[in-house]
Amino acid sequence: MSITRRSSDALARRLAALPAEIVAKVQPAIQKSVNEIAADAKTLAEASRDDGDLIRSIEATGPGQTTPAYGTDGRRKLHDLQGAVTAGAPDVRHAHLIEFGTDPHVNGGLFAGTQHPGTDPQPFLLPSWRLNRARVQRRINRAIRKAIKEASA
Rank of each mutant, 00 (worst) to 15 (best):
Leu78Glu: 01
Gly62Trp: 05
Ser57Asp: 00
Ala45Arg: 02
Pro90His: 06
Gly108Pro: 00
Arg6Cys: 00
Ala24Leu: 14
Ser128Met: 07
Gln122Gly: 05
Gln115Leu: 09
Ala39Cys: 11
Thr86Asn: 07
Gln137Gly: 15
Arg138Glu: 14
Ala153Glu: 10
Ile3Arg: 11
Ala16Gln: 08
Ala87Ile: 00
Gln115Thr: 05
Leu97Thr: 00
Asp73Ala: 11
Ala24Tyr: 08
Ala12Tyr: 06
Asp73Gly: 10
Gly118Asp: 09
Pro104Gln: 14
Leu18Met: 13
Leu44Thr: 01
Arg145Val: 03
Ile98Arg: 01
Thr86Ala: 04
Thr67Gly: 04
Asp40Phe: 01
Leu78Cys: 07
Glu46His: 06
Leu81Cys: 14
Leu97Gln: 03
Arg75Ala: 15
Glu46Val: 12
Pro123Arg: 03
Thr43Trp: 00
Val106Glu: 14
Phe100Trp: 08
Ala87Gln: 02
Pro19Ile: 01
Ser2Asp: 14
Ala39Ser: 11
Ala24His: 06
His105Lys: 13
Asn107Gln: 11
Ser128Trp: 03
Ile55Ser: 09
Arg76Met: 12
Arg139Leu: 14
Gln65Asn: 12
Gln137Cys: 12
Val85Phe: 04
Arg142Gly: 12
Trp129Ala: 07
His116Leu: 08
Thr102Gln: 04
Glu36Trp: 09
His96Asp: 08
Arg6Ala: 15
Ile98Gly: 02
Ala20Asp: 14
Arg6Tyr: 08
Val136Ile: 14
Ala10Val: 06
Met1Pro: 07
Ala60Ser: 13
Thr61Lys: 04
